[in-house]
Nucleic acid binder design. Structure first.
Lengths: 344, 344
DNA sequence: TTGAAAGCGTTACCAG
DNA sequence: CTGGTAACGCTTTCAA
């Protein structure tokens, strides 16, 4: 029960060398001469030696652990990001601790404390704001991914939400649509605001007025998409296309359209944003803005690891490219009822 | 730069007591007298003292960390489970480390090693098999969730896949369907086998022969559902209902049906399994078996924490209840083309 | 190139 | 109830 796991001392005694030498041999500093080196490596292997991480961390004052903090771990949106980040961390020998804030400022503060306490060496933050704190957080090794935290000095890895939104609206314009509405994300949420702005810019650039009621306030949720869409359908001059701030609301909108006896895309085109899992499996497969989520996670982790290693990030603002996925929820504008939509 | 974070020694010196007393006061053992106790607590608060976790773990030989190991972190299926488990762990003061195996036996072994090494105090395992090892793994604090690992002595928290599958098929039977096909999960995968068995049992119990070709081999993926469905449609006597081993394949099947000009549910009913995120947002909203995923995660973590605390699990096999979600992808069997399906 | 020894910050055992 | 002290297992000076 006592001496279960072999320690460095055991290997040292067995071989008649000092623990210090064993440590050097095992940590791969090229400071051990050849006869000894291989003997130590062999012995370690034979005994199935594994270093005690707590001891090492205590001594080295680091934890080899990074935090991934999201506001809702239940949101599939974060999955691929986590995946990419986990892979990058793993390759560098780091473990990933999950953090779920549920939008609770106290929890957010907790995770920052873990950082300050050295329980974690760095943090990838995917929440929209910073907890208030009496400490200067800006010096901590933190990278913000996907979201944008205004006024913070942390590096950001994100996409150009406004430009991507504009591109989506352009697509609708190029299909001949003019009455294009928007169902926005939560008010004040920077990502939602950026997408909204992109919509407005594209409309303005096309010389189009946005009719009253064409900008609906949503909440990123299915029901919000339904509600926004219902409001749009009640307008006298209802839109021929709807650009939604995320896919989930787009699904809600499509539901509502169908319930009203309208066909997508024949009667109304719908574009989403995010390209979440199975968006291509919806009916109709959703035209939407795809983010390279795994790459974003990977990049964020890479930047973070650089910072942890003491480097300065090359870019404080990394923009990852988006792709507009043209699928089947959009079709050319058709003023008059046509016998058949462009279903394949 | 040197003495940033206050340590117990600092508090002790400040107050003229010994570090040991500070430790006792702060760890809440009732072994410190009242005048001292509050002084220590106050001082700790004033200095914003936070314990060094590495040191504590080294000394206590535990990590206050549990591992959640899944085969693919990119699969939304695990999300809610993670969420439930994370919440339960957090409430007990544990952190959750993410593990992603990608079905790589080496990685799986890595995570078991983390356990053996004391880098983690326990593990919730959601992969189908055990890495081969020269060590007896059975004594490690591991709980298997969702999956079933045959021949292992670990407690399992799962659902009755066979019974739930039978219930789904019963639903189709009660709608008058007789020609019911199944698109199964990967061969050899216990969960998939159980669901398959449930299908066969329900059919047998109803006195129905399963026509040749009615059991398609799938892979849990969208394309697998498409392929399986296409094969079914090529049969002379094609099914009037399809029970798919998971939702994703059900979406694939529905796609394929629609491509063939068939309406769901008017021409063919489809049932899925899992009730993943947005299954209710599909068109048509999918009738499927819902698992209490968050509860499963929470329960698994609870059992695990019990084991870590030294207790024996009350049940080695906890079965969580499932619910058949009746939505709009199923309808009564209709031999002859009817003018209108039962769309709402 | 190697060894001795001093910690890293806590906790737990023994005395008092 | 409290103080001294010895670990926990590893890394890293400093000497040799």
């Amino acid at each position: 029960m006592n001496s279960r796991q072999p320690k460095m001392k055991d290997i040292a005694q067995r071989l008649g060398v000092s623990p210090a030498t064993v440590s050097r041999a095992l940590s791969g500093t090229g400071l051990v001469a050849e006869p000894t080196l291989s003997r130590i490596l062999e012995a370690a292997d034979a005994l199935d030696y594994r270093p005690n991480v707590s001891a090492r961390n205590l001594r080295r004052q680091c934890s080899m652990t990074v935090l991934m903090v999201v506001r809702d771990i239940g949101n599939p949106f974060y999955l691929e990001v986590l995946k990419g980040a986990e892979a990058a961390a793993r390759e560098a020998g780091y473990s990933v601790l999950m953090g779920n804030t549920e939008n609770d400022p106290e929890r957010e503060a907790d995770y920052f404390n873990m950082l300050r306490d050295g329980n974690a060496d760095g943090m990838v933050l995917m929440t929209g704001k910073l907890p208030s704190s009496r400490f200067k957080l800006d010096k901590l090794p933190v990278v913000v991914a996907l979201e944008r935290i205004e006024g913070s000095a942390f590096p950001h890895v994100e996409i150009d939400n406004a430009a991507a939104a504009s591109e989506a609206v352009h697509h609708l314009l190029s299909l001949g649509h003019r009455r294009i509405a928007h169902i926005a994300g939560p008010r004040g949420e920077p990502m939602a605001e950026a997408r909204h702005k992109g919509y407005e810019q594209a409309m303005r650039k096309a010389g189009l007025e946005i009719p009253p009621g064409y900008e609906q306030q949503g909440d990123y949720l299915l029901q919000g998409g339904r509600d926004g869409c219902r409001a749009l359908l009640s307008l006298v001059d209802r839109p021929s296309a709807i650009f939604c701030a995320n896919d989930e609301m787009a699904f809600g909108a499509i539901h509502e359209l169908r319930r009203s006896g309208l066909d997508v895309p024949r009667d109304v085109s719908v574009v989403g944003f995010d390209d979440i899992y199975l968006s291509q499996a919806m009916f109709p497969p959703l035209t939407t803005v795809s983010q390279p989520r795994a790459d974003i996670g990977r990049k964020a982790m890479t930047v973070l690891l650089d910072i942890i290693a003491g480097g300065k990030p090359a870019d404080m603002r990394v923009m990852m490219p988006t792709t507009l996925m043209l699928r089947e929820s959009t079709a050319p504008q058709q003023e008059i009822e046509t016998p058949r939509g462009n279903e394949i």
